[in-house]
Simulated scan of single mutants.
Amino acid sequence: MFSKGVGLFPTEPVGVIRDYTLLAESLGYDNVWFGDSQNIWRESSITMGAAAVGTERVVLGTGVTNAVTRHRSLLASTWASLAEFTGGRVALGIGTGDSSLRTMGRKPLTLAQLERAVAELRTLLRGEPVREADSGAEFHLSYLTEPVDVPIYIAASAPKILRLAGRIADGVIVLVGTAPEFVTAALDTVEQGARESGRRLADLHIVLWTPTAIDEDPVRARDLARAHVARVCIRPLPAEVDPSLRAAIDRIRDSYDYYHHMDTEAGHADIVPDALVDLFALAGSPDQCRDRLAGLAKSGVDQVSIVPFVRPGESRAATIRTFAELADQR
């Protein structure tokens, strides 16, 4: 069994994203995750604040932010404020940095830098001071009167960061596709990290980040998911891809355009073969997706969080509704 989540990239106006959030809550989704990439999408913190208005139950999080474009003082203050406003219904999803940095020619954080950022965020959310890396000055959130409990999730695909997430995070946003061999390998690696900190896999909340397109025409569905699959498959992964697909992955890596990150009409999406879509997405007819979900229910993840893809100009609401129906039929 798993809970339902939805990842929303703010490609549409803030009011539309808020409507999707209210819809997700009404359909029993447990989490709504908001993409953070300031050069290609609307501002995530404003979107989350607006989306929180009128919600009562759903947990709001980033899928995901970073500690480069967001100084940790800003991150800590954002999440302390959002936690206060929502009564603690928050989940801070963070990674090393992807399109938010790549679109400016900046490099992602190292794993050591990410680990330090997570530790400092927790210190700040306890109301304690940390030292600014460049100036050497201490700073803290002066308005906190007590510690703020904000679960920190790390987004991970490659083995090293999966293991780090298992060791230090409260939850893991796993981006490795939907094929059993990749999901199992990812969870095994997270568990190795968890054991290093005296924990078990069950002590972490595991979110399977799932590019999703559901259409009566499975060919159309696959086409819509190709752009996100392109981003998944060019990352290091916890299991080996079939050698026959490596040449295709190399071509995708060479042509990937971060200004068309997750864009269904991106040029790099056109060269993603069906075999990769089937490994790394939930894409097909409703019946096909229901069958895939039956397999994911046995995978050991706590949540399947869909990233709905539709044709340009179409609403994501139908996919959000359909997935809720399919998941509830398990």
Rank of each mutant, 00 (worst) to 15 (best):
F280Q: 03
H228V: 06
F182K: 02
W209F: 15
W209P: 00
I40K: 02
D188M: 06
R253L: 09
G15R: 10
V183K: 09
L175C: 10
A50T: 13
L296Q: 04
V176D: 08
R89S: 07
A269W: 01
T11Y: 12
E43Q: 08
L101P: 10
D134A: 15
V16M: 11
L109M: 15
V272E: 03
V64S: 02
S26L: 04
G313Q: 07
A194Y: 11
R200K: 13
I40Y: 03
S135N: 08
G61L: 02
Y258N: 04
S285A: 02
G313D: 06
R251W: 08
M104C: 11
I94V: 14
F182D: 00
S3R: 14
S3F: 12
I17H: 14
T86R: 07
S255I: 03
R42Q: 13
D250Y: 05
I214D: 03
E25A: 01
P180T: 01
G35P: 02
V219F: 12
H261A: 04
P159E: 02
R222T: 01
D149N: 14
F323S: 00
T178G: 00
T21D: 02
A137R: 15
G313C: 08
T184Q: 09
I173K: 04
I252R: 01
D274P: 05
L22R: 12
F139K: 03
V130M: 05
D36A: 06
N39I: 11
E314P: 12
P147F: 11
S26I: 01
S299E: 04
F9M: 15
R231N: 11
R195D: 01
G136I: 01
E265F: 07
D274G: 06
V190F: 14
D217Q: 10
K107M: 14
G35H: 00
G87H: 04
R321C: 04
P273R: 06
G93F: 12
L125S: 03
A50L: 13
G87R: 01
L164D: 05
L276M: 10
H260C: 08
A230Y: 05
I271K: 02
E191W: 05
R42H: 15
V304F: 09
E240C: 05
R42I: 04
P151R: 01
E265Q: 14
G300T: 08
A247N: 08
L109T: 05
R231T: 14
A165N: 04
C233A: 15
R70G: 00
V64L: 15
L23K: 11
W79F: 10
K160D: 10
L164V: 03
P151F: 00
L224R: 11
Y29F: 14
G166R: 00
T55K: 09
G284F: 13
R131L: 08
H260L: 09
I206T: 13
L121Q: 06
E196R: 09
Q288Y: 08
W209G: 05
L187Y: 11
H205N: 13
L74Q: 06
A202H: 12
R251L: 13
S197W: 09
V16R: 15
I40S: 00
E216T: 14
F323K: 05
R57Y: 11
A297M: 13
S99D: 00
G136W: 07
E84G: 14
G136D: 02
I168K: 02
H261F: 15
H71G: 13
H260F: 11
I161S: 09
A185H: 09
K298Q: 15
D291S: 10
I17E: 12
G49N: 03
